[in-house]
Design a protein around this nucleic acid. Structure first.
Lengths: 142, 142
DNA sequence: AGATTATGGTCAAGCAGCTTGACCAAATAG
DNA sequence: CTATTTGGTCAAGCTGCTTGACCATAATCT
């Protein structure tokens, strides 16, 4: 199996498992791309442009995605403290709960893998990946 | 950076580099998903259903993709030797040339990574990934 | 300062690629 | 030899993204 195929298969499988875990924990109407947006929003919020760059899509697409998350109650738009044009998108309590659920689901999935290849190996894998693609966007499609 | 994000970023970056390499070698009108279809078709051809399973999409979607590749001259449909319902999709000479170009581009990209983390590490990475997601579909999107 | 350009964001329209549903022909099962 | 399953296509529809236009604020330049 080619490396690219292996990477994609692993990434896809992990993404799907996390998504299933999130749904199983009772969060509805969320897609994997939302989860990656949450990851960018989590610490202190972010602008639509930040989310767009993180997901590797246009600002308009990110704006639509945020709008959807607002409708569903996962995030809210607040005025940006330093820039009157910008709006700071922050997670609501529901958004935080969903993020925690995703982290739990991810931990479960990684644990399952660690049982196959060993925990040290997983850490090594993670470290190598981080060295290879430090800050690339999380392309939701291609 | 979370493992899933690292996996996706790495997978996305590699996919994109391969794609750029293929385009730079003069092949037009091909998308990454086509390359993954080629990988399934490469040895001896495959049916539309096989391609669908490999890509993780419906038969209809795979059928459309194959139709597009036929139009562009990368593959052709032949009667299936053992089953009159089925049709064997095989690469044309152009399709083989494109596949070779993709392999070259992939080798270039992997070489660049190997310079960062070391060649042994790349092999180890590959082996671990293969152990983790042995035969999952290559989901083109989510 | 005022004029100009750049930046953050949204609205609107269009499109590519996927899905579901219906259907046909050949293969397999009863 | 009917009845069901399987491989494949046709058709219609939808979702999520893109490009293009536009507004308001910020930064830059005389």
């Amino acid at each position: 199996m080619a490396l690219s195929a292996a990477l994609l298969a692993a990434a896809g499988e992990l993404t799907q498992r996390i998504h299933e875990g999130v749904v199983a924990r009772g969060f509805e109407g969320v897609r994997p791309a939302h989860g990656f947006a949450f990851a960018r929003l989590a610490p202190d919020g972010a602008t639509v442009g930040d989310v767009a760059a993180h997901l590797g899509v246009t600002k308009q697409a990110a704006s639509q995605l945020v709008e959807e998350l607002v409708r569903k109650g996962y995030v809210e738009r607040r005025p940006h403290p330093d820039d009157a044009r910008a709006r700071l998108v922050v997670l609501t309590e529901l958004g935080w709960a969903c993020t925690r659920a995703a982290e739990e689901a991810a931990a479960d999935a990684v644990r399952a893998w660690a049982e196959v290849v060993g925990e040290d190996e997983m850490r090594a894998l993670h470290a190598r990946l981080a060295g290879i693609a430090p800050y690339g966007p999380i392309r939701p499609a291609w």
